[in-house]
Amino acid sequence: MRTIPIALFAAAALVAVAGCSSDDPGSSPGNGGVEEGAPPAGSEQTFEPGRQITVELTMATSEDGGRSTSFFSGYRPTVEFEYQEQSTTCYAQLPVELREFPPGETHRIGLECDDEVAAHPDTPGFRLVEGDAEVGAGEIVFNG
């Protein structure tokens, strides 16, 4: 009868616990909590049209040149992203617990844009624009 050294069993167990080695950081279960298919932390991320982008948004008050009224889910401002100076129309999606978004407040909401948007954690800023007026500003929330 042939015996297998215990060191081979130990090595196999370590590989199973740590996850298989791979060049793709999102492909193994031992990747430190990165979701499968998620880009490595600190890299550019692309949001296809209709894919929700989570943002932290502050709306300007009317005294600061912003809106004088609240907006609701479905609001479609022009959004100018700092990264690569991109501009597109986006649909604002408020969380269920936030019925309306008054001027002067800051909230985490979702944006779904008409065009593809590239984003990078080093340049997460954006502006909401109505005509020539900046009515809000914020940053993309990157997970990871």
Score class of each variant (00 low, 15 high):
residue 69 T to E: 04
residue 8 L to T: 13
residue 107 H to T: 12
residue 93 Q to K: 14
residue 116 E to N: 02
residue 21 S to D: 08
residue 90 C to E: 00
residue 40 P to V: 05
residue 78 T to C: 00
residue 43 S to K: 12
residue 99 R to H: 15
residue 71 F to E: 06
residue 119 A to R: 08
residue 38 A to H: 03
residue 51 R to T: 05
residue 49 P to K: 10
residue 98 L to M: 14
residue 45 Q to G: 01
residue 60 A to T: 11
residue 63 E to T: 12
residue 17 V to M: 02
residue 131 G to P: 03
residue 87 S to A: 12
residue 48 E to K: 10
residue 126 F to V: 12
residue 49 P to N: 06
residue 135 V to P: 05
residue 86 Q to P: 03
residue 56 E to Y: 10
residue 82 E to P: 07
residue 61 T to Y: 06
residue 141 V to H: 02
residue 99 R to L: 15
residue 58 T to A: 07
residue 18 A to I: 05
residue 80 E to D: 01
residue 93 Q to S: 15
residue 14 L to N: 11
residue 106 T to K: 04
residue 32 G to P: 02
residue 1 M to L: 11
residue 114 D to A: 00
residue 43 S to C: 02
residue 60 A to R: 14
residue 43 S to H: 13
residue 10 A to C: 00
residue 84 Q to F: 13
residue 42 G to K: 06
residue 122 D to K: 14
residue 12 A to R: 14
residue 4 I to S: 11
residue 9 F to Q: 04
residue 28 S to T: 08
residue 18 A to G: 00
residue 128 L to S: 10
residue 34 V to R: 15
residue 52 Q to M: 11
residue 98 L to P: 14
residue 22 S to M: 07
residue 76 R to P: 03
residue 19 G to N: 06
residue 117 V to S: 02
residue 137 A to K: 01
residue 57 L to E: 09
residue 143 N to M: 07
residue 68 S to C: 12
residue 33 G to C: 09
residue 48 E to R: 11
residue 96 V to M: 14
residue 33 G to R: 10
residue 72 F to L: 10
residue 143 N to K: 11
residue 58 T to E: 10
residue 73 S to P: 01
residue 111 L to T: 02
residue 59 M to Q: 06
residue 11 A to C: 14
residue 8 L to E: 15
residue 63 E to M: 10
residue 115 D to A: 06
residue 96 V to W: 12
residue 9 F to A: 05
residue 137 A to G: 01
residue 13 A to R: 08
residue 84 Q to G: 08
residue 7 A to R: 15
residue 20 C to D: 13
residue 135 V to R: 02
residue 45 Q to A: 11
residue 73 S to H: 05
residue 139 E to A: 04
residue 113 C to H: 00
residue 96 V to I: 15
residue 124 P to T: 04
residue 140 I to F: 03
residue 48 E to H: 09
residue 5 P to W: 13
residue 124 P to L: 10
residue 118 A to C: 09
residue 82 E to Y: 14
residue 21 S to E: 03
residue 99 R to Q: 15
residue 72 F to M: 10
residue 106 T to A: 03
residue 4 I to E: 09
residue 91 Y to K: 13
residue 14 L to V: 13
residue 2 R to N: 14
residue 125 G to F: 07
residue 15 V to P: 00
residue 90 C to T: 05
residue 21 S to C: 05
residue 80 E to V: 03
residue 85 E to V: 11
residue 36 E to F: 03
residue 121 P to F: 09
residue 13 A to Y: 05
residue 85 E to G: 13
residue 41 A to K: 10
residue 75 Y to C: 07
residue 144 G to E: 11
residue 8 L to V: 14
residue 85 E to K: 13
residue 54 T to H: 11
residue 83 Y to N: 07
residue 135 V to I: 08
residue 47 F to D: 03
residue 131 G to K: 05
residue 135 V to A: 03
residue 110 G to A: 14
residue 125 G to S: 07
residue 40 P to N: 09
residue 83 Y to E: 14
residue 120 H to K: 09
residue 74 G to P: 08
